[in-house]
């Protein structure tokens, strides 16, 4: 016999994070939350946080985010996640609470909680999923809804004079001294998902080092409420969201710059 190929060991170079049970999610086709949850799972694995992390559920489509991780979790709907996470961290400084909050949950119902938790410099991780609408309840206007954007409660589009202007949460929080790290990332292509992965890791590392809140705003696909085919949703982010919500870092304490050197990718 000659020139026969033998498969040596097959090696998975990309697979489900260990910390995420083999379970289908309840998200719609193409929902960005699935990518965000996986990125957090990768970080929980890499930083070995299985026994330390506490997933704080919010309201909206991320309400049951704790179902997708083998970690302890609790519920703090309607924007209260930063307050509950504060309590967990202060009572159990050895644990690490984190939350995924939607834009209705964080920027509308819970705006007070996030602002004060950020101002206090709580050592917690907040991942803010911005999809420009209230997803779970059927696509109503959120504080992040774009001017002109159709939602089920602005059927002729968002109008400045009637509904006001969208809020840039990351920029606003970056004026505070408490947060250690604030950045805005997007999920519209693999390169940006890799950047999002890196930002999320920093948002975990910084509060773990006691440097203050880690906050990442993720521009996230919600095809069903944007009324676009999932496959066109990433381009929708590029065309509509990024002009209003520019990507980048808005806050990075000098000590966090040091931490970044340890982050791969």
């Amino acid at each position: 016999m000659s020139n026969r190929g033998i498969n040596d060991m097959d090696n998975a170079i990309f697979r489900r994070p260990d910390i995420m049970p083999d379970r289908a999610t309840h998200f719609c086709p193409g929902c960005g939350h699935g990518i965000t949850q996986r990125l957090i799972g990768e970080v929980l694995d890499d930083l070995r946080l299985r026994d330390k992390a506490i997933c704080v559920g919010s309201i909206g489509c991320t309400v049951t985010s704790y179902l997708y991780y083998d970690v302890d979790g609790t519920e703090a709907p309607h924007g209260r996640a930063p307050a509950v996470a504060t309590a967990i961290k202060r009572c159990h400084p050895d644990l690490h609470p984190f939350a995924i909050q939607g834009d209705g949950d964080l920027a509308s119902i819970g705006m007070a909680e996030i602002v004060h938790a950020a101002a206090r410099g709580e050592n917690i991780t907040i991942i803010f999923a911005n999809n420009a609408n209230y997803g779970m309840t059927g696509g109503q206007l959120a504080p992040t809804t774009l001017v002109g954007m159709y939602t089920s409660s602005t059927i002729a589009g968002r109008k400045e004079d009637r509904h006001g202007f969208p809020i840039r949460v990351s920029e606003m929080l970056a004026t505070l001294d408490g947060p250690a790290y604030i950045s805005r990332v997007s999920l519209h292509n693999p390169a940006n998902v890799r950047k999002a992965r890196k930002a999320i890791e920093i948002a975990f590392r910084a509060p773990l080092e006691g440097l203050g809140m880690g906050f990442v705003e993720v521009l996230s696909m919600c095809p069903i409420n944007w009324k676009v085919e999932p496959v066109n949703a990433p381009q929708w982010i590029v065309d509509n969201m990024i002009p209003q919500y520019p990507l980048g870092e808005f806050k990075c304490k000098p000590e966090v710059e040091e931490l970044k050197k340890a982050v791969r990718g």
């Binding site: 000659s2 020139n3 998975a12 990309f14 489900r16 995420m20 693999p190």
Partner: peptide, 26 residues
């Protein structure tokens, strides 16, 4: 093996494998 597909998959449906194929006279 660029992993782009798996990185974009919201449902973690894709696993990417790399295998070494040895070619020779046996």
């Amino acid at each position: 093996g660029c992993k782009s597909c798996a990185i974009m998959c919201p449902d973690i449906a894709i696993t990417v494998y790399s295998s070494r194929v040895l070619e020779g006279d046996i």
